[in-house]
Design a protein around this nucleic acid. Structure first.
Length: 470
RNA sequence: GCCCCUGUAGCCAAGCGGUAAGGCAGUGGACUUUUAAUCCAAAGAUCGUGGGUUCGAAUCCCACCGGGGGUACCA
């Protein structure tokens, strides 16, 4: 059947609003209140001359009550397909069985579905279908929709929280002539008119610090970044990072900011600073424990090691704990590998792991009193990395030396090593004040707050192999 | 990249060497308070693709394609 589809429609109520306003009605009562709603027909129960439907809109579900004496074109109404969009006007009422309903006194088709909707009870279970046809998943899997609403709320709360602290939001380039700000393999692309190669950004870091140089003292970006790496439950090739930079601050200030922000988000989004993740309780209340990388290795692996430990001994310790290493690794990298394999997966309660070796932290400022270390930290919760932050390296000469070390690593075969960014060094020449910087993996944070185990449940359209239509 | 699992009608799903259950949706019919409505009827499947083994393959083997998980790599 083909219908005249209107160009616009004006609902004046939603399922949620009606439930809130009229939920308390007595069974079998009528209100005299006429409303107009719109949504998708999800269920239908026709009994001869009386029909019921379940309409779902963006807010929830409400029943439609359609007696043949009241509903125009009754036969057409009962012939609607599950999945059709309709607009309905009529009185708000409650049936004898106590179901809040809208009496169908007028109705209009707003879209006809050309494909049959998934099983009305089981929905979709095939993950491939859920990810590829998210437009269907969102209708038939209410939990899926809830996660994305939570994500949206998290972003919105984050923005407001930062703006309240005088951070301003900016947008910096996605096309980078030199990939930088992180250790990762980039995607490449080509601009025809400029006849130039570009890299899709792996981090906005170096541009945001240029803005600190430019006098924007508190700045943040919610940046889609792209890394040419494998896909897993924790990795999507394009993902979202919150990066922020605060002039005159150091990594200690960043720790306070992180624990306060995350605690705030947990309370606002879940009602409590103590959340449940993967069946376990996780208390995100500030303050969080602080411990150095070296302390944690002693605590979890029982090894007393440090940057002063002879390299051969560090290698032996790595072997003892089955940590795979390469010949090119210096003491700093060996310590980091040891930490990542023996400590990180065992950390559940939120913790700041502080003071990373300089060797593996090319953009962090040297520690004020520990030679060879930097003022850098990562926050870990539920065994996952939540953020990475540091007191920013301001010294152009030192930064150049770190870049050059990276270039050497690249020449030695490290495909993720950084290149020298001359313009960034020039910016540093003009003077970067003491600055605290922070990057939070937004997708992973949302996973934690939404209690989901795969990043695909918080990314609407996760990267998949392109579908072949034949 | 490697390892394991997986792919049966639009959706859910059984069958696991003997020639494709069942349910939902769709079609036709009955039914004025149902809510995964119910009842009756008919219909719908190159069992991911291509090879092979076998008298016989959805079932076993190989390759390929898609998906999931793990691992490696990785902010």
């Amino acid at each position: 059947m083909s219908h005249q589809i209107p160009y616009r429609f004006e609902p004046d109520a939603t399922a949620a609003v009606l439930a809130e306003k009229y939920g308390h009605l007595e069974d079998g009562s009528e209100t005299g209140q006429r409303v107009t709603i719109a949504g998708r027909l999800m269920l239908r129960r026709v009994q001869g001359k009386l029909a019921f439907g379940t309409l779902q809109d963006g807010s929830g579900r409400i029943q439609l009550f359609a007696p043949s004496k009241v509903t125009p074109h009754f036969d057409d109404f009962t012939a609607l397909s599950l999945g059709d969009w309709i607009g309905v006007s009529g009185e708000v009422m409650k049936t004898r069985r106590g179901e809040l309903s809208v009496k169908v006194e007028e109705w209009t088709v707003l879209a006809e579905t050309q494909r049959s909707f998934p099983d009305k009870f089981h929905g979709i279970t095939d993950p491939d279908l859920r990810y590829r046809q998210r437009y269907v998943d969102l209708w038939v899997t209410p939990e899926a929709r809830d996660k994305f609403v939570l994500r949206s709320n998290a972003l919105s709360l984050m923005r407001r929280w930062l703006e309240d602290r005088d951070f301003i939001e900016v947008e910096t380039p996605v096309f980078h002539p030199i990939p930088g700000g992180a250790l990762a393999r980039p995607f490449t692309t080509h601009h025809n008119a400029l006849d130039s190669e570009f890299f899709l950004r792996i981090a906005p870091e170096l541009y945001l610090k240029r803005l600190i140089v430019g006098g924007i003292e508190r700045v943040f970006e919610i940046a889609r970044v792209f890394r040419n790496e494998g896909i897993s439950t924790r990795h999507n090739p394009e993902f979202t990072m919150l990066e922020l930079y605060q002039a005159y601050a150091d990594y200690g200030d960043m720790m306070e900011l992180v624990e306060q922000l995350i605690e705030y988000l947990a309370i606002e989004l879940t009602g409590s600073a103590t959340i449940t993740y993967d069946g376990r309780s996780l208390d995100l209340s500030a303050p969080w424990r602080r411990a150095t990388l070296v302390e944690l290795i002693a605590e979890h692996a029982g090894e007393l090691v440090d940057l002063d430990t002879p390299v051969e001994e560090l290698r032996t310790v790595c072997h003892r704990h089955d940590v795979p290493i390469k010949d090119s690794y210096g003491p700093g990298k060996l310590l980091l590998e040891l930490y990542e394999k023996t400590v990180e997966p065992n950390l559940w309660d939120p913790i700041f792991v502080v003071d990373y070796p300089e060797e593996v932290s090319p953009l962090s400022r040297a520690h004020r009193d520990k030679p060879g270390y930097t003022e850098r930290f990562e926050a870990i919760a539920a065994g996952r990395e939540l953020c990475n932050a540091f007191s920013e390296l301001y010294d152009p000469a030192e930064q150049r030396a770190r870049f050059e070390d990276q270039v050497k690593a690249g020449e030695a075969g490290d495909e993720e090593a950084m290149a020298v960014d001359e313009d960034y060094l020039r910016a540093l020449d003009y003077g970067l004040p003491p600055t605290g910087g922070l990057g939070i993996g937004v997708d992973r944070l949302v996973m934690l707050l939404a209690d989901v185990q795969t990043i695909r449940d918080v990314v609407l359209f996760p990267t998949l192999k392109p579908e072949v239509f034949d």
